[in-house]
């Protein structure tokens, strides 16, 4: 398994050898302790559970959590995530760092996108809105329009796209390139953008 948890720090750009300015995201990834190995025999599936972001105070975790981490002999972390793998090569207690990744690796990055709040249909579902403000419809330029028939079917179909909460959904961007690995600072420089706000948790998995 080549996966890490990290914190999105923000975006910048760096130059490649051809002098092109490449947009990139800086992620603080790892160190991630392996907290548990899930096995088919015991858990019904096989996976590796890793943590990220060591807690500094013992009051930040409760007793069951402390016991879970103590089993692997690692310090408690803020986040825990599992990654499905068939044959885990790591042992619990091991610590994964950015050195898992090499420059040029292709990864997929998963995170929770920025929450947009309650949005109308134009922003949320890319409706066109109304193209004109004349003929008495100047007050409904961004309105959804008809949401269905009247006498038939006399109801609104489930799944009808309407206004509502937008964003803060798990998103994955695939095929991103690792531009740089900085082990001293636990940093990964990933080409392009990754989901989520600054300081949010991201999962980085080699493809």
């Amino acid at each position: 398994m080549t996966a890490l948890l990290g914190k999105k720090l923000g975006m910048t750009s760096i130059y490649n050898d051809r002098g092109e300015s490449i947009p990139c995201t800086v992620v603080k990834a790892g160190p991630c302790p392996v907290v548990q190995i899930r096995t088919k025999e015991r858990d019904g599936y096989s996976a590796v559970q890793i943590g990220f972001d060591y807690l500094t105070k013992s009051t930040q975790s409760n007793k069951p959590e402390k016991g879970h981490f103590a089993k692997a002999n690692v310090r408690p972390t803020r986040f825990l995530r599992e990654f499905r793998v068939e044959n885990a090569v790591q042992e619990s207690g091991a610590e994964l760092t950015v050195e898992l990744f090499n420059i040029g690796d292709r990864v997929k990055v998963t995170g929770k996108g920025k929450g947009r709040g309650f949005q109308g249909v134009v922003k949320r579902h890319h409706f066109g809105g109304i193209g004109m403000t004349t003929h008495g419809q100047s007050d409904r330029v961004r309105a959804p329009g008809s949401i269905g028939g009247s006498s038939y079917p006399s109801r609104v179909f489930p799944g009808q796209r309407m206004a509502g909460r937008m964003g803060y959904e798990t998103r994955t961007i695939r095929n991103l390139e690792i531009l740089d690995v900085i082990p001293e600072e636990n940093l990964l420089v990933i080409k392009g953008s990754v989901p989520g706000a600054i300081n949010s948790l991201v999962e980085i998995v080699r493809m």
Partner: peptide, 8 residues
């Protein structure tokens, strides 16, 4: 960290 990457 961002300035560090830029500086590099």
């Amino acid at each position: 960290a961002i300035q560090f990457v830029e500086q590099k």
